[in-house]
Simulated assay, not measured.
Amino acid sequence: MSDLQQRFEQAQNDVKQLPERPSNMTLLRLYALFKQGSEGDVHGDKPGMTDFVGRYKFEAWETLKGTSQEEAMQKYIELVEELKSGAAS
Rank of each mutant, 00 (worst) to 15 (best):
Q74R: 02
T67R: 15
K65F: 04
G54W: 07
E62H: 15
Y76L: 06
A72T: 04
L83V: 00
E59S: 12
G54E: 08
E81N: 02
E82T: 01
Y56S: 12
L83W: 00
Y56E: 15
A88Y: 08
E82L: 01
V80R: 01
K57S: 03
L64P: 03
A88F: 05
G66F: 01
A60T: 10
D45L: 11
M49T: 13
K65D: 10
R55F: 05
G48P: 12
E81A: 01
I77G: 00
G66W: 05
K46H: 14
F52L: 11
G66T: 10
T63S: 14
K84Q: 06
E59L: 09
K84N: 02
K75W: 07
E82V: 00
D51P: 11
H43Y: 13
Y76P: 00
K75R: 14
D51A: 11
Q69I: 09
P47E: 05
D45S: 15
V42W: 03
K75H: 04
K65W: 03
V53M: 13
V80G: 01
V80W: 13
Y56A: 13
G48Y: 03
K57I: 04
F52S: 13
A88C: 06
G54V: 07
Y56Q: 14
H43L: 10
V80K: 09
A88G: 10
T63K: 15
E71S: 10
V42K: 06
M73T: 04
L79P: 00
Q74C: 08
A72H: 08
E62T: 12
F58P: 14
Y76M: 09
G44C: 11
K75S: 08
F52C: 09
F58E: 09
G54N: 10
K84H: 04
D51K: 11
H43M: 09
G48L: 06
K75A: 01
F58M: 10
A88N: 10
M73C: 03
L79N: 00
E82Y: 05
Q74P: 02
K46Q: 15
A60D: 06
F58A: 11
V80H: 04
D51L: 05
M73L: 10
P47K: 04
E82G: 01
D51E: 14
G66H: 07
G86F: 02
T50G: 12
F52R: 11
K84S: 05
K75N: 04
K75L: 08
V53T: 12
G44P: 13
W61P: 07
A60Y: 05
K75M: 03
Y76F: 07
Y56V: 11
E70K: 15
D51V: 06
T67I: 08
G44F: 06
M73Y: 05
